[in-house]
């Protein structure tokens, strides 16, 4: 078991370095240097070259990458010339809020999707199943921001009971947590989109398991259906969900980005969006790499969680 974790960890480290390299290369290709960001778009060519030389942007790409890697280890993500802050400081400010938004949505969506998927599987082809499947299909096919727009229209504009965007007053994570009315629409939007895909998967996994022989044996023992579902089906049907959640990190990040942009919520996603428009290289690079690291980490945790939950997977 320990060997399994070590092996996975080793691979993860290699992948992270690889990802950082590829991302760095791609961003470098798009934005060779932030000189224009620092000096302004009208800076002279000579000034740009001098600036590049001063800040090390004239070195070969590999050297730049290695020094970037070195900085990463010290948690130094570079400097944003547009916002005049170190990227690390920017992240620290915004990470909590993003984590709250995404985390709350993730927890809620799992809490809804798992029972929903199982219920659909148990009552297969019932009206409940058809309605929920149709509903999920529609949500699954809808861009998250469109759902957000609809909710804003209904609850924000027409009914006026919820704010249209998150107010500027919400500046800290704690404030976000304590002002549920502000956060309701963004969280609900993200949750709804996640539930659509999670419950589809869960339904399919539950259906597969319901057809299996061990469920039949459990019933033959005289267990009530409720006990069969909770004590036998639940754990086995959730196993693929662990992998799914681990693999969903990139999707969660994307959702985060869109929702924050839509609702004007001061998180990492909005930071990235603004950086895109401002062509703020350091922020873009940093967040993409952080996203990649989170993805790899997510897969790693999912792998380990599967090994813990499923005794068949406990390889050396």
């Amino acid at each position: 078991m320990v060997g399994y974790i070590i092996r996975r960890l080793g691979i993860a480290v290699i992948v992270v370095i690889g990802v950082a390299a590829v991302t760095f290369a791609m961003l470098h290709y798009v934005f060779p240097s932030p000189a224009y960001a620092a000096l302004g778009p009208k800076a002279s060519h000579v000034a740009v070259l001098a600036w590049d030389k001063q800040h090390g942007y004239d070195r070969p790409v590999l050297t730049q990458f290695l020094s970037y890697l070195g900085n990463l280890v010290h948690l130094d993500f570079g400097y944003s010339y547009k916002l005049n802050q170190s990227v690390t400081a920017l992240f620290k400010e915004n990470a909590g809020r993003s984590a709250y938004l995404t985390g709350a949505a993730l927890v809620l969506s799992l809490a809804i999707a798992i029972p929903l998927g199982i219920a659909q599987a148990v009552k297969r082809n019932s009206p409940l199943d058809y309605t929920m499947t149709a509903w999920n299909f529609a949500l699954y096919s809808m861009p998250s921001f469109f759902l957000g727009l609809i909710l804003i229209q209904i609850f924000g504009l027409d009914l006026g009971i919820l704010p249209v965007g998150v107010s500027d007053q919400i500046t800290t994570t704690w404030q976000a947590i304590t002002h549920p009315k502000q956060m309701l629409l963004p969280i609900v939007t993200l949750t709804a989109i996640n539930v659509a895909s999670f419950s589809r998967y869960m339904r399919s996994s539950a259906l597969d398991n319901l057809a299996m022989d061990y469920i039949r044996l459990a019933r033959a023992k005289g267990l009530s259906e409720r006990v069969v579902l909770t004590r036998h089906l639940l754990r086995n049907a959730c196993l693929p969900m662990i992998t799914l959640v681990g693999l969903s990190i990139p999707t969660l990040l994307a959702g985060n980005l869109l929702i924050e942009a839509l609702f004007n919520y001061q998180g990492l996603g909005l930071l990235f969006y603004n950086a895109l428009q401002a062509e703020d290289y350091a922020v873009l690079l940093a967040y993409t790499i952080v996203g990649a690291i989170l993805t790899v980490l997510g897969n790693l945790i999912a792998d380990i969680a599967i090994a813990v939950a499923d005794p068949r997977v406990r390889l050396d």
Binding site: Y214, N236, P311
Partner: peptide
């Protein structure tokens, strides 16, 4: 009580 043919699939793999 009943016993089935395939013991591998009839037993809960995670219990």
């Amino acid at each position: 009580a009943m016993i089935f043919q395939d013991s591998l699939s009839s037993l809960n793999p995670t219990k």
